Amino acid sequence: MKIIEGTIASPKGFHAAGLHSGLKKTKKDLGMIYSDVPAAAAAVYTTNQVKAAPIFVTKEAMVDATIQAVVVNSAYANACTGKIGAENALAMQALAAEQLAVPKETVAVASTGVIGKQLPMEIIEKGIKQIDLPTANPYDFHEAILTTDTSTKEIVVSAKINGQTVTMAGVAKGSGMIHPNMATMLAFITTDAQISSELLQGILADKTETTFNQITVDGDTSTNDLVLVLANGLAENPMIEIGTPAYETFVEMFQLVSEALAKLIAKDGEGATKLIEVEVVGASNPSDARLAAKKVVGSSLVKTAMFGEDPNWGRIICAVGYAGSQTDPEKIDMWIGQQQLLKHSQPQEFDEAEMKQTLEKEKILITVDLNIGEAKGKAWGCDLTYKYVEVNALYHT
C-alpha cells in the first residue's frame, strides 16, 4: 500500500470538475463527481435534527445504494429553507442528471455554507450547464467545496488486491462546526475496487467511529454534512468478500484515507495554529477510550492552553474526569509529547525548556493512561485562537 499523487478522480472511471459559478465573489463554488458506471455507495449523515434539504435528497437517492454522480455547491447551505429549499435541492439533482445523461435517482446532492438563504437557482443552473468533465481539472472540485477552509484536503492511496491495482481517493472540507457524530463536514471517497454496497456501508460505519467521529473543532454539529463513498468496480478485482486478505487490505486502505482526512480537517480548524492529538490508553473498553480522548481534545480550556503553549495538565485531567468513561482517579498517567506530567495522578517534574519546544510545534500529542484495562482510542482537534472568534463573528458578512 502506498500514498500517491492524485485527485478524487484518480481511481479508474471517475471524473471530477469544479468552477466559479457566481455563488461566491471569486472562488470556485460548484463541483461534480461522475463515475463511468453506476457505483456501489455508502453514506453517513449528520445527526443534527435540523437537516439541510440536500441531505434528504441524497438519502432518497441512496435507497438502492447505487450512485453515479454527485453535485455539490458551497456558499449556501440550503438549510432551514422550507419547501422552496427542498424543491431547489431536487432541481440541483435533476439539472446534474440532465447534464450528465444519468437517471436523477443516481445523483447525490450536497451543499455547504450560510444557513437560511435560498439557493440562487439561476446561477446554479448556469454553472451546472458549464461543467465539461472531459476537459475539466479534477482538482478544481477540491477547491469548489471549501468554505472557510484555508487549504484543500485530499489523499490518494493504491494497493494490490487479488492481483489488481486498486486505487482509493478522498477529499474533504471542514473548518468550523466540526464536532461530528456524524458528520459536520463534507467528505467524498472514491475507489475502483469491486465491493458490495453492504460491505462498504459496514466498513464506513465502523471507521467513522474511529476517525471522522473523533475530531472536534468547536463543539458544534452542522446541519448539512455527510461522508459519501463510491466504489465502481472498474479495477476489475474479484468481488471483495469479508474475512479474506483482500477485505483486510481494503479496510486498511479505508482506515488510512479516513484518518488522514479527519486529521486534515482538525488541523484546519478556523483560526487554528496547532493540530492536537489525544491518545487514551489503558481504558476498560474502546468506547470509553474514544470518549475520554474526545472530551480532552474538545475542551475549550485545553484548546486555549495549547494555543497559549501552557502545559496546564489540570485542564486535561479535569476533562478526563467528566468524560463519563470508567476511571480510577488515583491511577491516571499523563504525557505531553515525551514528558510525563502525572504518574498515578501525582505531578511529576519536567524539563520546562523541552516542554516549551514541544508546545511550539504544529502538532501536539497528549497521552493519557487510565491504567484500568487494555483498550485505547484517539481523537483530533485544534487550538482555540483569537482568529477563531474573528472568523465566526464576521462569518455572515
Rank of each mutant, 00 (worst) to 15 (best):
residue 1 M to D: 07
residue 1 M to N: 08
residue 2 K to W: 15
residue 7 T to M: 02
residue 11 P to Y: 12
residue 13 G to E: 13
residue 14 F to H: 13
residue 19 L to C: 08
residue 19 L to T: 13
residue 20 H to Y: 01
residue 22 G to Q: 06
residue 31 G to E: 15
residue 44 V to I: 14
residue 45 Y to N: 11
residue 47 T to S: 15
residue 52 A to E: 14
residue 53 A to Q: 10
residue 55 I to Y: 08
residue 57 V to W: 02
residue 59 K to R: 00
residue 59 K to M: 05
residue 62 M to V: 10
residue 62 M to R: 09
residue 65 A to P: 00
residue 65 A to D: 15
residue 67 I to D: 08
residue 68 Q to L: 07
residue 71 V to M: 00
residue 71 V to S: 02
residue 72 V to T: 08
residue 72 V to Q: 06
residue 73 N to F: 14
residue 73 N to I: 01
residue 75 A to D: 04
residue 85 G to K: 01
residue 91 A to V: 06
residue 98 E to L: 12
residue 98 E to H: 13
residue 100 L to R: 10
residue 114 V to Y: 02
residue 118 Q to S: 02
residue 118 Q to E: 09
residue 125 E to A: 12
residue 126 K to P: 00
residue 127 G to C: 07
residue 129 K to S: 15
residue 133 L to R: 15
residue 136 A to H: 10
residue 138 P to Y: 00
residue 141 F to V: 11
residue 142 H to N: 06
residue 143 E to G: 13
residue 144 A to F: 09
residue 146 L to W: 05
residue 147 T to E: 09
residue 148 T to L: 00
residue 152 T to F: 08
residue 153 K to H: 13
residue 154 E to G: 02
residue 156 V to Q: 01
residue 162 N to H: 14
residue 162 N to A: 15
residue 173 K to R: 05
residue 173 K to V: 10
residue 176 G to T: 01
residue 178 I to Y: 06
residue 184 T to D: 09
residue 184 T to G: 12
residue 185 M to C: 09
residue 188 F to E: 02
residue 190 T to I: 11
residue 191 T to Q: 01
residue 192 D to A: 03
residue 195 I to H: 02
residue 196 S to Q: 05
residue 200 L to D: 08
residue 200 L to E: 04
residue 200 L to W: 02
residue 203 I to F: 12
residue 207 K to G: 06
residue 208 T to C: 10
residue 209 E to C: 03
residue 209 E to W: 00
residue 214 Q to P: 10
residue 215 I to N: 04
residue 215 I to T: 11
residue 216 T to L: 04
residue 217 V to C: 00
residue 222 S to F: 13
residue 224 N to Y: 01
residue 224 N to T: 04
residue 227 V to W: 09
residue 232 N to D: 06
residue 239 M to A: 14
residue 244 T to S: 11
residue 244 T to Q: 05
residue 246 A to P: 04
residue 248 E to D: 10
residue 248 E to S: 08
residue 252 E to N: 13
residue 262 A to P: 11
residue 266 A to Q: 06
residue 268 D to M: 04
residue 271 G to N: 06
residue 275 L to E: 09
residue 276 I to A: 07
residue 277 E to M: 04
residue 277 E to D: 05
residue 278 V to M: 03
residue 279 E to C: 11
residue 281 V to C: 10
residue 286 P to L: 08
residue 289 A to N: 12
residue 293 A to R: 08
residue 295 K to W: 14
residue 299 S to E: 10
residue 299 S to L: 09
residue 302 V to P: 05
residue 303 K to T: 01
residue 306 M to P: 03
residue 307 F to V: 03
residue 308 G to L: 15
residue 309 E to K: 14
residue 309 E to F: 01
residue 310 D to C: 07
residue 317 I to M: 05
residue 323 A to P: 12
residue 326 Q to A: 01
residue 328 D to R: 05
residue 331 K to S: 08
residue 333 D to L: 06
residue 344 H to C: 11
residue 346 Q to G: 03
residue 347 P to E: 13
residue 347 P to L: 04
residue 350 F to I: 10
residue 353 A to Q: 13
residue 361 K to P: 01
residue 361 K to M: 06
residue 364 I to R: 07
residue 364 I to K: 03
residue 366 I to L: 02
residue 367 T to E: 05
residue 368 V to W: 04
residue 370 L to G: 07
residue 376 K to N: 15
residue 378 K to E: 14
residue 383 D to S: 02
residue 387 K to Q: 06
residue 391 V to Q: 09
